[in-house]
Amino acid sequence: MTITQVDRAHLSRAVELAREALDDGDEPYGSVLVDAAGRVRFEDRNRVKDGDQTRHPEFEIARWSANHLTPDERAAATVYTSGEHCPMCAAAHAWVGLGRIVYATSSAQTGTWLAQWGVPPGPVATLPINAVAPDLLVEGPVLELAEKVRELQRRRFGA
């Protein structure tokens, strides 16, 4: 598949949610769940600042989907996210049977930026989504959003 203008609009909203997270003192990540008819069903941003490191928006989408959508609805949905899923979120996405993932920036891009700024790696290995969940349909990065996401990450670390 190719990235469409509709995809770009949802990704832009995910990046805006990432900015909202950063402005609230959280890590800058945001995600949007869109159903097969193109309706936004759920959106969230990172909420880890209070100590629960599982409060990633992609994980929240998986939880919400498991409780509110049928298996067929989950499989037909698309998750748009500012940054590629971490291994925890990729596994949650696969376990609940969500469909396509479209991300603005890859984990590799973020890792490169953090290394350039001298930020030590986190406690979990950085892996591409398909290394964790090989059958998921994944598209990204979307390069025209990379600089916006990079700037959010730079602000987060004061680089």
Rank of each mutant, 00 (worst) to 15 (best):
G25E: 13
G38C: 05
V40K: 06
S106W: 00
V15D: 01
T105P: 04
A75W: 06
T126R: 12
L33Q: 07
L17C: 06
I3R: 02
K148P: 02
V32D: 03
F42R: 05
D24Y: 07
E144W: 01
Q153S: 12
E73D: 13
D7H: 07
W117E: 11
A66V: 08
A36P: 03
E16M: 03
L152S: 00
A131W: 05
L127I: 00
T54D: 14
L11M: 01
A108H: 07
A76V: 04
T2Q: 12
R8I: 04
I61T: 00
W113V: 03
F59R: 09
A62W: 06
T70N: 09
P120A: 08
H85S: 12
R45F: 10
L33N: 04
P57E: 06
R100A: 11
R41I: 12
A18N: 02
R41N: 06
A133G: 12
S82M: 01
V15Q: 00
A104P: 01
V124H: 13
P28F: 01
T112Y: 10
A18P: 02
A104E: 02
M88A: 15
E147K: 05
T54L: 13
S12I: 00
M1Y: 09
E58F: 05
P87L: 04
A9R: 09
D35M: 09
L17N: 07
Y80L: 09
E16A: 10
L33K: 05
A104M: 02
A115L: 13
N130F: 06
T126Y: 02
E144L: 02
I101C: 09
A125R: 04
A131F: 05
V48H: 06
S82T: 00
G122D: 15
V34Y: 07
L127S: 03
S82W: 00
W113D: 09
G122N: 11
T112P: 01
I101G: 06
W113R: 08
A37S: 15
H68F: 14
V142P: 01
H68E: 15
A77V: 03
Q5P: 02
A125L: 04
Y29K: 12
L17W: 07
G83F: 10
N130V: 12
W113K: 04
A77Q: 06
G158I: 03
G99T: 05
E147N: 09
E84Q: 09
V132T: 11
E16L: 05
H56C: 12
T112V: 11
E27C: 10
K148R: 15
I101L: 15
S82R: 00
V102F: 08
R74V: 10
P71Y: 15
M88W: 13
H93M: 13
H93E: 14
D7R: 01
N67C: 12
G111W: 02
E151S: 11
A108E: 15
P87V: 03
E139I: 08
A146D: 13
D50A: 14
V102L: 10
Y103C: 08
A104I: 00
V124L: 13
T126K: 09
A36E: 13
A62E: 10
V119W: 04
W95V: 14
A76L: 09
R154M: 06
C86R: 01
E43C: 04
R41V: 14
